[in-house]
């Protein structure tokens, strides 16, 4: 047994969150089919969520007993501004994807994040973002025919039109 452990900033809150979430899931698993039968659809979910509740409870108690390490601070070591900003950008991306469409959303996302992280010139950021977006578009959209949400850009029609252009020329 390793003597007195320390905990990072926010670790206790995370452990508490996991314990509570596990309890909610255990209740949910019970609600699936109760103790109806060994073969009930809720049997394995109940067993696993029970394991989750027990392990998270022990983890919580252990973490609670550990001393705060006094070195880490949540907003510096765990969630510094840079990571918080990128995470928010990701959430923004997810929300904008369907209404606005894949091409504009991705272009803006890449541009802003690359500019923000690299602190290089706008020309560099624009060049890199567009180039990579074109490559990703070609691979996923043209080769693998993944229909990304078109949003405000009628790229499906544009593509069909380009194709007729090429087939017409041949």
């Amino acid at each position: 047994m390793t003597p007195p452990k320390t905990r990072k900033s926010g670790e206790l809150a995370f452990a508490a969150f996991l314990s509570l979430a596990s309890l909610v899931l255990l209740y949910n698993a019970y609600a699936i089919s109760g103790f109806e039968a060994l073969s009930a659809p809720g049997a394995i979910p109940m067993a696993t969520t029970l394991v989750m509740v027990i392990t998270t409870a022990i983890i919580f108690i252990k973490t609670n007993r550990a001393k705060p390490d006094g070195e880490t601070s949540f907003w510096v070591d765990i969630m510094p501004l840079r990571i918080a900003v990128v995470t928010l950008m990701l959430i923004g991306y997810a929300l904008a994807l369907k209404p606005i469409g894949f091409l504009p959303t991705s272009a803006v996302f890449l541009l802003v994040v690359i500019k923000y992280l690299s602190r290089r010139s706008w020309a560099f950021s624009i060049g890199i973002s567009l180039l990579s977006l074109v490559i990703i578009y070609l691979v996923f959209r043209i080769v693998f025919t993944v229909l990304m949400p078109a949003g405000i850009v009628p790229e499906g029609e544009a593509l069909a039109w380009v194709r007729t252009l090429f087939s017409g020329a041949n």
Partner: peptide, 28 residues
């Protein structure tokens, strides 16, 4: 440089998650 690589990984992750089932839910 990581400043370029990381945004690209993020975008690829999003497109990749979507591509499996054409589902925005999967992105969430």
């Amino acid at each position: 440089p990581r400043a370029v690589l990381i945004p690209l990984i993020l975008l690829l992750s999003i497109v990749g998650a979507y591509a499996v089932n054409n589902s925005i839910t999967d992105i969430y």
